[in-house]
Amino acid sequence: MRLALAILACLVVSAGSAYAVGPKLNCQDPQTQAEMTQCAGDEFDAADKALNAQWKLTRAALVETDANLDADQKGAEKALLKGQRAWIDYRDGQCEAEGFSVRGGTMEPMMVASCKARLTELRTKELKSLAEPQ
């Protein structure tokens, strides 16, 4: 009985992974709403990854800035963290609000993900400019 259950579990896992691998999605020409939503999600994931990489660089630059300041002048890293936390709240709220234009429809997740990608790309540029020497 245990062997039969183990074999059945392996078959279910194998079948599920076959669907996960499937053909690569062409985000240059998505054909369905599901594909458009997936592409928007992928775009946001890529933007978020780039933002996280830039965050590390910017934070390191502002830690260095703090290290070169007198004690009463320090606070660059703390200000960056405060700004980033506020920005995340802003981005999420703004994109949720934009999603209300198609509230409850199949386009809503795509609209929210596209908004998050757009704002995240802008924030990455802002973080990059903070890290550049003045």
Results as ranks from 00 to 15, higher is better:
133 P>G: 13
78 K>E: 07
95 C>I: 08
93 G>M: 07
115 C>V: 10
46 A>I: 10
74 K>D: 03
76 A>C: 01
46 A>P: 01
69 L>S: 01
42 D>A: 11
71 A>N: 06
50 A>W: 10
124 T>G: 05
41 G>K: 07
75 G>D: 02
117 A>E: 06
105 G>T: 15
120 T>Y: 13
59 R>A: 13
119 L>T: 00
126 E>A: 13
82 K>E: 09
124 T>R: 05
112 V>A: 02
70 D>G: 11
84 Q>H: 01
90 Y>C: 04
128 K>T: 12
89 D>P: 00
49 K>I: 05
90 Y>A: 06
33 Q>E: 15
54 Q>N: 05
28 Q>W: 04
20 A>N: 06
40 A>S: 09
45 D>M: 10
61 A>G: 02
34 A>L: 11
77 E>D: 09
132 E>F: 05
23 P>W: 08
90 Y>G: 04
56 K>P: 06
59 R>V: 05
112 V>Q: 03
75 G>M: 06
60 A>H: 06
45 D>W: 07
119 L>H: 03
97 A>G: 10
112 V>E: 05
31 Q>R: 11
77 E>Y: 01
100 F>P: 00
42 D>M: 10
114 S>I: 07
55 W>F: 13
66 D>S: 01
79 A>S: 13
68 N>I: 06
66 D>A: 07
31 Q>W: 02
130 L>E: 07
105 G>V: 10
18 A>E: 12
22 G>C: 03
37 T>C: 03
72 D>S: 10
110 M>H: 05
66 D>N: 01
95 C>W: 00
43 E>K: 15
54 Q>H: 07
126 E>T: 11
40 A>I: 01
87 W>N: 03
43 E>V: 02
127 L>M: 03
131 A>K: 04
54 Q>S: 09
85 R>E: 10
80 L>I: 01
131 A>L: 08
